[in-house]
């Protein structure tokens, strides 16, 4: 464990909690892409199956359980508890355009052709594109509430910190996970455009982030 990865995991946890609290306190999921949240729950479900096969550390187990619980709680709030505020007209990204290539690629490119490895690889590739429905929804509505942008900021920060973690581990441990790194870099690139808008619009105190 290094400070970059720890900060990345904390940033990821903060993002998930920000979103969950926003929905719970405002009793509404307007402007939130339920599809992205379902994809994230799927990412955790397919990646954390090793909870039942290997013990890494208490931290590892606790964080995986927390991420699973919070992501399912978020999906529950969106599609069940506050479903009447779910903005389905604007949450129209075709997730099959993400799932089909990701499934295909995880069968082609993996470390071993075993169920756990293919599911892990699937979760890595899926996480890279899971935010697309949310970013698409923001471009469609032309704006995002500031809390939603904070959620996206911390998600992007988590990815940027993981890249720093991989640079650190490469130099300190000679560690290099090609699938995770390539997919992680692609995922981080998707946030760059958002980061620019976040800094230029949200942090300038405009409150909402409205796209040009």
């Amino acid at each position: 464990m290094n400070i970059f990865r720890l900060a990345g995991d904390v940033s990821h946890l903060v993002a998930i909690i920000i979103l969950l609290l926003k929905i719970w306190r405002s009793k509404s999921c307007a402007g939130i892409s339920g599809k992205s949240q379902v994809l994230f729950a799927l990412v955790f479900s397919t990646r954390y199956l090793d909870l039942f096969t290997v013990f890494v550390s208490v931290y590892n187990v606790v964080m995986k359980v927390v991420f699973l619980a919070l992501s399912y709680a978020t999906v529950y709030l969106i599609y069940m508890r506050f479903r009447n505020s779910y903005d389905s007209e604007n949450d129209t990204f075709r997730v099959e355009f993400l799932l089909v290539p990701v499934i295909g690629l995880s069968f082609l490119e993996n470390y071993a052709f075993t169920p756990l490895e293919i599911l892990w690889t699937f979760s890595i590739f899926l996480e890279a594109v899971a935010i697309m429905p949310q970013l698409f929804m923001i471009t469609k509505t032309g704006e995002a509430e500031s809390i939603t942008t904070h959620y996206l900021f911390f998600l992007g920060l988590y990815r940027a910190l993981y890249i720093a973690n991989w640079v650190w581990r490469y130099h300190m441990e000679g560690f290099f996970d090609q699938i995770a790194v390539v997919s992680g870099v692609v995922q981080t690139i998707f946030y760059c455009d958002f980061f620019y808008l976040y800094v230029t619009r949200v942090l300038r105190g405009k409150g909402k982030m409205s796209l040009p």
């Binding site: 464990m1 290997v54 890494v56 590892n60 470390y111 075993t114 490895e117 892990w120």
Partner: peptide, 10 residues
């Protein structure tokens, strides 16, 4: 390779 190495990242 990575398969038998411990996957310790979240």
């Amino acid at each position: 390779n990575r398969q038998d190495e411990l996957k310790d990242e979240l």
